[in-house]
């Protein structure tokens, strides 16, 4: 059974349409949900966490819908967002009390261990926390419960490389037993380059592609060359050609066969480069 299954998710706003989004994540894997700002990432995640109500479509978590059992559904989800969702005047201990009252599976010992490990100050109000501290408090809250999926909405934005690396390790630890998964939206694609199993790429509310990351990285090559060597046949077969005064850069889909003459520079692209050229 898939851990998370999203089928035909649709949400219409006055000037934006999230259009028929479908994907699934098997248990024990990490999916990167990528796209530029305003592509529909947060709308999708908010529908899954049920912060907003979708106009159409079905979302199943371990085969269960929100409607069937809202309490259990919420228990299964750990969420970390871009901005802190804690009341700014509270301390970490206030949060601990709230979580204890709100979630059946909240593990106080685990929460305290994270507080200790990350040295979050006991009496400081959350509004005085740095960005890194706020993110750590959100992660501690999500990881101290018995959840099945971690949903991260731009959670690593604005963090220093040390904290980001620590978080990536936590995510891998989270899925290690093969029963839990991570859905990770970000535009810092470097974070996904290594650890993501699947990539869902969305633009203007629509799917651009959905594949395993390995397949994606092996399908495309980054081609560079002089503009004068760009014949109409080559130009037709390349994706997302960007020209500058001295040459061009584009994606080459290796599935289209070998139409490139020698003399072009060819290298492996990053996910970043794939995204940039696909949006050309």
């Amino acid at each position: 059974m898939e851990l998370l299954e999203v089928k035909g998710l649709t949400k219409r706003y006055k000037d934006f349409l999230l259009d028929d989004i479908s994907f699934s994540i098997p248990p024990g894997f990490i999916m990167g949900y990528i796209g530029k700002n305003g592509a529909g990432k947060t709308t999708t995640l908010s529908a899954i966490t049920h912060l907003i109500k979708a106009d159409a479509g079905e979302i199943c978590l371990e085969g269960m819908t929100f409607r069937k059992d809202p309490v259990t559904y919420r228990e299964k989800i750990g969420y970390v967002g871009d901005a802190s969702y804690f009341p700014a005047d509270l301390t970490r201990n206030d949060i601990r009390i709230i979580l204890r009252n709100f979630y059946r599976s909240f593990d106080e010992k685990k929460f305290d261990d994270y507080m200790e490990k990350w040295e979050l100050p006991k009496n400081l109000k959350i509004k005085k926390y740095s960005r890194g501290m706020k993110v750590k408090l959100m992660f501690a809250s999500a990881l101290s419960r018995d959840t099945r999926i971690l949903i991260l909405d731009e959670a690593t934005n604005g963090l220093d490389p040390m904290v980001r690396r620590e978080i990536l390790e936590l995510l891998q630890e989270y899925i290690e037993d093969g029963k839990r998964s991570v859905l990770f939206s970000t535009h810092i694609l470097e974070d996904l380059q290594n650890i993501a199993d699947y990539i869902y790429f969305i633009d203007s509310g629509k799917k651009v592609l959905f594949d395993t990351k390995d397949e994606l990285l092996e399908t495309y090559l980054l081609v560079k060359g002089g503009t004068e060597e760009l014949t109409p046949v080559i130009e037709k077969n390349l994706t997302g050609i960007v020209k500058n005064g001295y040459g061009f850069e584009a994606l080459y889909d290796t599935g289209k066969g070998d139409f490139l003459p020698t003399g072009f520079s060819v290298e492996k692209p990053t996910i970043d480069e794939i995204m940039v050229h696909m949006l050309q």
Partner: peptide, 14 residues
């Protein structure tokens, strides 16, 4: 497979 993925920081599919 999962331990190796975690230790080397690469994906489980890899």
């Amino acid at each position: 497979i999962r331990k190796l993925a975690k230790e080397t920081g690469v994906s489980v599919i890899t």
